[in-house]
Design a protein around this nucleic acid. Structure first.
Length: 447
RNA sequence: GUGGGUAUAGCGUAGUUGGUUAACGCGUCAGAUUGUGGUUCUGAAGACCGUCGGUUCGAAUCCGACUAUCCACCCCA
């Protein structure tokens, strides 16, 4: 059998057997965002190409070589969104949400597209959890954003993660800094690599990021942005640090964090995992006070972050973290014969109407295979219906964990089952509780 | 865009210096005195050994190209 096509390079099929991992992180992410007062926003998966060129910056890697751009029949060219911020800002402006008072706080869980070469933790279609906050210039907003990211990472049980923090100043202090950088690097022009030479004029801060041994050796002694911050930016950064200190959050001031998107100002940060490969950045974000104006709105302070869900899940897998258990059916109906199948299907529908999850045989298998199937899918109860039951208008409801069978009449089926399932759900909690206390006891005695 | 590794049933693997029916585990399906799962036992289905071409009497095994995938650079989530 030859399949007609393969999935596009750098994409992932998320199969039923592991989809609960995604549900787990999506749940955590939404709970945390809502806990911090953020509301979901959904915007198109593609936007006018100029939006991304304008926001990310025409020298950024994203714009210069990673965009999926398609031309439509008309005259506009569209681009599959490479990141979430630009589209959100556009939507907030276009719908006048910025006029409805500040702060505005939104979050999203979205697929993004970037034409990179795939490798560990890097895909051409990947998923981002992101948040944006508009209208606050206060460092408390910066801290809140960082704390939200941290609470997601904590919620996922991740420990070996470091918060890297930096300030890249505002347009004013960056002007000074760029000048200093240009002077510094121009003095060593002959030693720089080709790409760095090109960057030198347009965006000298990118040179700090270069991994080539020679460039990075030169960059090591380059001027540091933190020494060039204007008074306001310096005060902002100091305040942010003391807020984080007061929360008891540890962080590392890392002058090398500069971010690849041009719109960032002042605060930039990354959460870097040590349990991933080379793509260790699980979350990256910062402040972008100039972007709203750049996209045609009133000057508005803003900030946010993006978090890579693939990387998040991968880190959890690598460190053996728990995911939510997949849901199992409350009851499985095992009919024997055609009459019984009709009645089983009816019962099954009635049980579903009560709000329980229920299945019945749709293959026409014998009883034994059905029991095996019921066990495999983790059904909590099984009801076998055959000629005997139909004649006497009765049924037995079997608890698959204890093996106990409870007789009932078909008329009373719903009531009997409701009682049984509620008892069972309590019992399951007790069992889990017991297991936990047993495990704790074991751990204690070992210590 | 630049490097390096890998490619054998749904999944994970074995396959000896090229030699004839390509092996094993998991999974799937079916049975073990005929209306009851989890353990065990038995059996079955399932692979043109990534694709194309070359060397050879003979290729899963050697060579080449292509494709996919993984890892690293780069960049970022």
């Amino acid at each position: 059998m030859a399949i007609i096509a393969q999935k596009p390079k750098g994409t992932l099929d998320l199969l039923p057997a592991s989809i609960h991992k995604w549900h787990t992180v999506e749940q955590i992410v939404k709970d945390c965002a809502q806990q911090f007062g953020f509301k979901e926003i959904r915007t198109p998966m593609f936007e006018d190409t100029s939006l991304y060129v304008r926001s990310a910056g025409d020298t950024s890697d994203v714009v210069t070589k990673e965009m999926y751009t398609v031309s439509s029949a008309g005259d506009a060219t569209f681009t599959l969104r490479p990141e979430g911020t630009a589209g959100v800002v556009r939507a907030m402006l276009e719908n006048g949400v910025m006029n409805e008072g500040f702060p505005q706080k939104v979050y999203y869980v979205i697929p993004c597209f970037r034409h990179d070469k795939p490798q560990a933790g890097r895909y051409r279609q990947f998923h981002q959890f992101g948040v944006e906050m508009f209208g606050s210039a206060s460092p408390f907003a910066d801290a809140d954003i960082i704390m939200l990211a941290k609470s997601v990472l904590d919620g996922c049980g991740l420990e070996n993660i470091e918060l890297n923090l930096n300030s890249i100043g505002c347009a004013e202090c960056r002007k000074e800094y760029h000048k200093a950088l240009k002077e510094y690097f121009t003095a060593r022009k002959d030693e720089l690599c080709q790409t760095c030479l090109e960057r030198l004029d347009k965006n000298p801060m990118r040179l700090l990021d270069c991994k080539s041994p020679i460039c990075s050796a030169i960059a090591k002694d380059a001027p540091v942005i933190l020494d060039y911050l204007c008074d306001d930016c310096r005060a902002h950064f100091e305040m942010l640090k003391s807020i984080l200190d007061s929360y008891g959050v540890s962080y590392k001031v890392n002058p090398k964090i500069v971010r690849g998107l041009d719109y960032y100002t002042r605060t930039v940060f990354e959460f870097i995992s040590n349990d991933l490969g080379a793509q260790g950045t699980v979350c990256g974000g910062g402040r972008y006070d100039g972007l709203v104006k750049e996209l045609g709105g009133q000057p508005t302070p803003a900030l946010g972050f993006g978090m890579g869900l693939e990387r998040l899940i991968m880190t959890m897998e690598n460190t053996g973290k728990d995911f939510l258990d997949p849901k199992t059916p409350d009851i499985y109906f095992a009919p024997m014969g055609q009459k019984a199948q009709m009645r089983s299907a009816q019962l099954c529908m009635e049980i579903r109407d009560e709000g329980y999850s229920a299945e019945f045989d749709v293959i026409g298998r014998g009883l034994k295979p059905q029991m095996r199937y019921a066990d495999k899918i983790g059904a909590k109860f099984v009801c076998v219906l055959g000629d005997n039951e139909l004649e006497t208008s009765s049924a037995k409801i079997k608890n698959m964990r204890t093996g106990k069978e409870t007789p009932t009449s078909l008329e009373d089926f719903k009531n009997t089952f409701s009682t049984l399932i509620i008892e069972e759900l309590f019992a399951l909690e007790d069992v889990n509780g017991d297991l936990e206390s047993i495990l704790n006891g074991l751990i204690d005695s070992e210590e």
